[in-house]
């Protein structure tokens, strides 16, 4: 049986990883902000569509409108996350060209 002890050691990339305190560069911090904001907006939209709309009114058309509004808000949340990823990519591309 081939028991190579080196496979239990951390990979070289992991060894060169920055210390925990400075692991998040400004770019990653900005991306994390987008993720958090996006998830919050998604949750807000879902709450409007699934909780607020049924509780607010019995009038079906108004309820459908509020539901639709909530759905759009939640989708905007997903868009904020995607925007964060896009910014990180742009920044990484710029860093590479510098």
């Amino acid at each position: 049986m081939n028991a190579d002890p080196a496979r239990f050691l951390p990979a070289p990339a992991a060894l060169s990883r920055p210390a925990r305190g400075d692991a998040f560069s400004p770019v990653l911090k900005a991306a994390a902000r987008h993720w958090l904001a996006g998830i919050a907006v998604c949750a807000l939209g879902a709450a409007i569509a699934r909780l607020l709309a049924p509780a607010l009114t019995d009038e079906t058309r108004l309820r459908a409108l509020i539901t639709l509004f909530g759905e759009l808000v939640a989708l905007a949340g997903l868009f904020i996350i995607v925007l964060g990823i896009r910014r990180r990519l742009d920044q990484a591309a710029q860093d590479r060209s510098d």
Binding site: W35, G38, A46, R50, G70, E71, A74, I81, V82, I85
Partner: peptide, 22 residues
């Protein structure tokens, strides 16, 4: 510049959860 697989996976999880909620 590649989107990391972690980002794609996290997006899939959040996207799936939000769309299923809606």
């Amino acid at each position: 510049v590649k989107v990391t697989s972690e980002e794609k996976l996290a997006f899939a999880v959040v996207g799936c959860a939000v769309l299923c909620l809606l």
